[in-house]
Amino acid sequence: MKLLKIEWLKLKGHPFFWIGLGLYAACMILLVSKAGGIEWRVDDPDNEAGQKLLNFGEAGFYKLPYIWQNVTYLAGYFKFIPAFLLIFFVSNEYQYRTYRQNIIDGLSIGEFYTSKLISAFIFSVISVLIIGVNAGIMAILYNESASAADYFQNMDYLLAYFAEVLFLMLLALFLTFLFKRSTITVIIILLYYFIVEPLAGLAIGDPISDYLPTRPSREMITQPFTRMLRLDVAFKIKSPETFSYHFLLLTFLYTVILGFGGWWILKRRDL
């Protein structure tokens, strides 16, 4: 409670916290509400000669129970926004030397670390809330005759999404404690996530590459478009019914490892 209060005092006073989250929320609202308008060229069975334009909305983007997968998958690309906010706030503690002052004033290193885990948790919860409420509203608008049970079916995609975001938060936290500065941390995390690990994955080959740190979190929620656009039927492949629990477990495992990793870094060095 004490640690939560301290984090809250630190966060709420910074304009970036509100501006960052406001922009993030606005982005997500735009993303979710406009995604239905994305158009896609499909073969038109009624018209021998040509194709027709189909948009995501018509293709069932907002239909229960698939909406949960559709939205969490798309939102997954924007999870870096809260991660950057977290990197910014934690590296500030180094830049302002307030980390050291907090310890002098009475926090133990463990308490300080815990307070940052709380921050990571808060950012993840906020992200899930924004996405969840957004998807929920769109679900209500587009599914008039749905029952409560229909809403809950596949809602566990939100849990998977939470695990995905929390993993990235812990990765961000770990790297921030390692490098202490926001710019380098942001560069490294992007390089690693989008270049280093995918290349390493290619080099290692498929079954093992699934066990690289960020792989489970990004493969957990599979892309929904094959099914949405009926391509699975066309190409005779089977779309998974739900997200991979195997990957969920691995994501969680890596999150815990990163959690201990950050603690290990902090304990070993001078402030």
Partner: peptide, 29 residues
């Protein structure tokens, strides 16, 4: 640590917060 008030090298505070808010954080700690 409660009995020792200390300032090491430079005054370290959250620059974006007022004196009152900075002191609130320290009082909580």
């Amino acid at each position: 640590k409660q009995k020792v008030g200390a300032l090491l090298e430079t005054p370290n505070f959250y620059p974006y917060l007022s004196a009152i808010d900075n002191l609130k954080i320290i009082a909580t700690i």
